[in-house]
Structures are given as structure tokens and as C-alpha cells.
């Protein structure tokens, strides 16, 4: 049962896709409890259902069966408008391909969640500046995403994800498009932010060594199922 210390509670969550008669169990009967301020790494081979699970937690998709509770809200009970508001206020998301809007400047990209959350106009420049400072990119305010390196783009994406001060940050292979040094810098930034702001991070990744170095716990998926969820011992991290 979820308690006050639980950020995300998954109970027998399944998501299946039917394509031309065939049924694919993308997520199959997953139960998992994620504590507040925990940094969970979700590992597994390609097609094992990691992204699908992340989208379910994000409220971008609904499970075929089972229930998801996040920050005390049972997602199944939310209407689609409430779900949008939940994504806006409770969730921050970053992606492997950054997903910055190429036609907007960094400032405009970061302002987007503020517009959606209907934050007062006067308050916005300060908020944008604050998160850009956190990712150390204030000097690139008026640039477009394509003028930045991959690592910088991902930092902007993190700033955009943080601007509405979410309680949960969901990252889908955030280092997948970055070289290892840059990837490591991004993860270290994520961990710093998590410690300073206090939030729950669920990060999907291929790279076990990185996950072991930065995450508190590893959850491993295979073929839609949760194979194991284990605390990372200091020895394993070494």
C-alpha cells in the first residue's frame, strides 16, 4: 500500500497493444513502489517495455489493467484534462532526442510549460532565468536549439522539464544520443538537481554502469515484465 513516503505506486499494471489481431504485452503485470526522492534506473533490452511504462507513469497513456498512483493521485480517476494538468504540474519529462521545438529559442522552449500552466507573464522571465542558471546556459537564452551541442540541448530540455517545479522527473534514455563524457555530465546534473530540489527520478537507460553510478535503485525489465528491482550496494557501484 502506498504511504506518505511513496511517490509512485504501480499495481499489476499491464498495457497491451493489438495490431492486426496479434496482441503485444508491452507492459505485463508490473507492480513497483517508488519512494519519494528516489532515483530509479529502469534497465532492459530494447522493446522490453521501458518507454511504455514511463509513458503510463507520465499519464500520456493509460494502462489496459492495473492502477497507477502518483503523488497521491490515482491516474485512472483523472479525466483527460486533469491528466494534462497532472503532466503539466507534477511531471517533468526528458527524452533521448531532446524534443526541443526547433523553431523556438531556448527561452521560448522553456517558457512553453509556463504558458500551459498559465503562470503569470511577469513571473515567467524570472522562472526561465532560474532554471537556465541551474543548467548553466543563461548566456544562450536567445539561441535556437540547433545552435547548441547535444549535451547543451539536453540541459535545456532538463531546464524545460524543471520549470514548473515537478515532483517527478521522467527521463527516457537521456544519454542515448550523447557521448559518454557528456552523458555523465548530464546525469551528474540530474543528480545535483534532484538533491537540491528534492524530487523523484525515473530514468530509462541502456547503460548499466552509468545507472549504477548515479541511481539509488535498478529495476530491470524483460519482455514487458519486471524481472528484478534491487538497491544498489556500494560494492556493486564500484
Amino acid at each position: 500500500m502506498p504511504n506518505a513516503e511513496t511517490a509512485i505506486q504501480l499495481d499489476r499494471v499491464s498495457r497491451q497493444y493489438t495490431m492486426g489481431g496479434a496482441t503485444i504485452q508491452a507492459v505485463n503485470d508490473v507492480s513497483l513502489s517508488i519512494a519519494r526522492n528516489e532515483f530509479l534506473a529502469l534497465l532492459g533490452s530494447s522493446g522490453s517495455g521501458k518507454s511504455t511504462l514511463l509513458n503510463l507513469i507520465a499519464g500520456l497513456d493509460r494502462p489496459t489493467s492495473g492502477s497507477i498512483t502518483a503523488q497521491g493521485q490515482n491516474l485512472a480517476e483523472l479525466t483527460s484534462i486533469e491528466l494534462a494538468r497532472y503532466r503539466c504540474n507534477t511531471i517533468g519529462m526528458i527524452f533521448q532526442s531532446f524534443n526541443l521545438l526547433p523553431r523556438m529559442t531556448l527561452e521560448e522552449n522553456i517558457e512553453l510549460p509556463l504558458r500551459l500552466a498559465e503562470v503569470a507573464r511577469e513571473e515567467r522571465p524570472g522562472r526561465v532565468h532560474e532554471v537556465l542558471e541551474r543548467v548553466r546556459l543563461t548566456h544562450r537564452l536567445g539561441h535556437r536549439p540547433t545552435e547548441l551541442s547535444g549535451g547543451e540541448q539536453q540541459r535545456v530540455a532538463i531546464a524545460r522539464a524543471l520549470v514548473n517545479r515537478p515532483k517527478i522527473l521522467l527521463a527516457d534514455e537521456p544519454t542515448g544520443n550523447l557521448d559518454s563524457a557528456t552523458g555523465e555530465a548530464v546525469l551528474s546534473l540530474l543528480r545535483d538537481v534532484q538533491r537540491e530540489l528534492g524530487m523523484t527520478i525515473v530514468m530509462v537507460t541502456h547503460e548499466r554502469p552509468l545507472a549504477e553510478r548515479y541511481a539509488d535503485r535498478l529495476a530491470i525489465m524483460g519482455d514487458g515484465k519486471l524481472l528484478s528491482a534491487s538497491e544498489i550496494t556500494k560494492e556493486a557501484a564500484q
Binding site: A58, L60, S80, I81, A84, R85, Y86, R87, C88, N89, I91, M93, N99, L101, L112, P113, L116, A117, R160, N164
Partner: peptide
């Protein structure tokens, strides 16, 4: 459109 929705845009937005 997908990004907008991920960032919290409702269908109506």
C-alpha cells in the same frame, strides 16, 4: 504536438 502534450497541453489546447 506530442511534445506539447507531454509538457501538459490538453487536447483542447
Amino acid at each position: 504536438i506530442g511534445v506539447l502534450k507531454a509538457l501538459g497541453a490538453a487536447d483542447s489546447d
